[in-house]
């Protein structure tokens, strides 16, 4: 790849998703991350109950992310051919797991804030 700069990557991602959708996804990811940090700061502690739900959601996030990539690219698990493929595969699963758990935790905290006595 010639000149694989940050600018090139952005241009490629804009073409991949369409400019509007790409920046919408970037903003969505930033907003969810900030919301996550916001609830952590607001609540001053991690709610173990919500954390449990977030953890329980992780396998679903992992499976969903992998299934999405396989479906979009018309491939199957038997196509994994080398170590880098396994690393990419696990990476996609990890991103899906962490992404969904953050979403679940944040959504839970925003919808049902802890009662005052808890904090």
């Amino acid at each position: 790849m010639k000149d694989l700069t940050f600018g090139t990557m952005i241009a490629v991602f804009e073409e991949m998703f369409g400019r509007g959708l790409f920046w919408f996804l970037v903003v969505a990811a930033v907003v969810i991350t900030l919301a996550y940090i916001y609830v952590l700061i607001r609540d001053r502690s991690v709610s173990m109950k919500k954390f449990l739900w977030a953890q329980l959601s992780m396998p679903f996030g992992a499976v969903a992310a992998v299934a999405l990539v396989l479906w979009v690219t018309k491939s199957s698990l038997s196509d994994l051919g080398g170590p880098i493929d396994v690393i990419i595969f696990l990476g996609i699963a990890a991103l899906g797991a962490v992404g969904l758990s953050i979403l679940v935790y944040t959504a839970g905290s925003l919808i049902a804030p802890p009662e005052r006595s808890e904090g």
Binding site: D3, G7, T8, A11, V12, F13, E14, E15, M16, V69, V72, T73, K74, S75, D79, L80, G81, G82, I84, D85, I88, F89
Partner: peptide, 24 residues
């Protein structure tokens, strides 16, 4: 490799389009 297939499926046309625009 699967990753090379992923690149062909997902990244090649966007890279091509970015090249057309003179951005890659």
């Amino acid at each position: 490799l699967w990753i090379s297939w992923l690149m062909k499926e997902l990244a090649l046309k966007p890279t091509y389009n970015a090249m057309l625009r003179g951005e890659a």
